[in-house]
């Protein structure tokens, strides 16, 4: 039983990370109806840059803002080279392929810089587990949950309260009309990519002490986070937290009770099932498109 609860705890922590990446998908999808297929690679880069800084002796709390800035730059690069030309020629195929290509390139770069191995990333808190309800929980897991929620809340508050955040929502609602209000909508889209990569890089630094950091860790994370975004709905902030937790727990349970090799399977099967029953996600709104 204790093990079961412990698995639930780690599932929640893992799920929150998926939630943060999924949140990044939501950001760009809202403003430009595009997604970064290399989102997982952004997370991986965040973790690897963080690791390098950590090895240089930089304090963990200082690493976070540096990695976030790196994320802003990385996201802008993806938008500028991968997405902007595709939006211009209105090619869906274009941005899907180019963000995939950029993801592949980033991964390959990382492999050449950091090698193919995986490394331990020392977290800021003790490694000794705490006991809650009789089960072990790592302090880092608590930190992950707090960090993830804090990040999503910060972005939400920014969007709801600041005039720039409202400009982001306005662009998401109606791009042309936003332009008429004096909002530079291409800049808003670039910004949403920068923000999206920032959240992913942040998630990378958060999760790395729990898992291991490695150049090839990105791909499956990006995919599972997409599953979360679909299960929760691409328009629901609450949905991705619930979706993240469901998938995170299903993954830790499968990993322990069946086999670690199968741990990714339930998320992907849930993804297929949700899509076939309710394509807008469990918490998403069905929108009627005007013809």
């Amino acid at each position: 039983m204790d093990i079961f609860i412990q698995l639930i705890y780690s599932g929640i922590a893992l799920g929150m990370i998926y939630g943060v990446i999924a949140f990044g998908y939501q950001l760009t999808f809202a403003t430009s109806s595009t997604l970064n297929f290399g989102q997982g690679e952004a997370l991986m880069l965040g973790a690897m840059v963080g690791l390098t800084l950590s090895n240089l002796g930089v304090n963990y709390w200082l690493i976070i803002p540096i990695v976030c800035i790196f994320g802003l730059v990385q996201g802008s690069v993806v938008e500028y080279f991968g997405v902007r030309p595709a939006i211009k020629i209105k090619s869906e195929f274009g941005w899907i392929m180019s963000t995939i290509a950029l993801g592949v390139i980033f991964r390959n770069l990382a492999e050449n810089i950091w090698g193919r191995g995986t490394y331990r990333f020392q977290g800021p808190v003790a490694d000794e587990p705490l006991k809650i309800f009789g089960a072990n929980i790592l302090p880092m897991e608590i930190l992950v949950v707090i960090g993830a929620v804090a990040m999503m809340l910060m972005v939400e508050i920014f969007n709801r309260k600041s005039i720039y955040g409202k400009a982001v929502i306005a662009t998401a609602n109606d791009r042309d009309a936003s332009g008429l209000m004096g909002i530079n909508t291409s800049l808003v889209i670039t910004f949403s990519y920068a923000l999206s990569s920032l959240t992913a890089c942040f998630a990378g630094v958060l999760i790395a002490p729990l898992t291991l950091a490695g150049a090839s860790a990105g791909g499956s994370l990006g995919l599972k986070a997409f599953a979360v975004a679909i299960v929760g709905g691409l328009s629901s902030g609450f949905g991705i937290i619930v979706g993240g937790i469901i998938l995170g727990i299903s993954e830790t349970l499968t990993g322990f009770y069946i086999s670690t090799g199968y741990k990714d399977v339930p998320s992907l099967i849930i993804l297929l099932i949700v899509l076939s029953i309710k394509p807008s996600g469990l918490f998403g709104k069905t929108t009627i498109k005007k013809v």
Binding site: L35, S220, L223, A227, I230, S259, L268, L272, P279
Partner: peptide, 28 residues
């Protein structure tokens, strides 16, 4: 059947998920 209910980017991700599942299954 499920994948084609959805459009462009979803479809790409869902097929990617399928491909990943197949690779895992072959391995396991």
């Amino acid at each position: 059947l499920p994948a084609l209910k959805v459009l462009g980017p979803y479809m790409a991700m869902v097929t990617l998920a399928f491909g990943t599942i197949i690779q895992i299954l072959i391995n396991e």
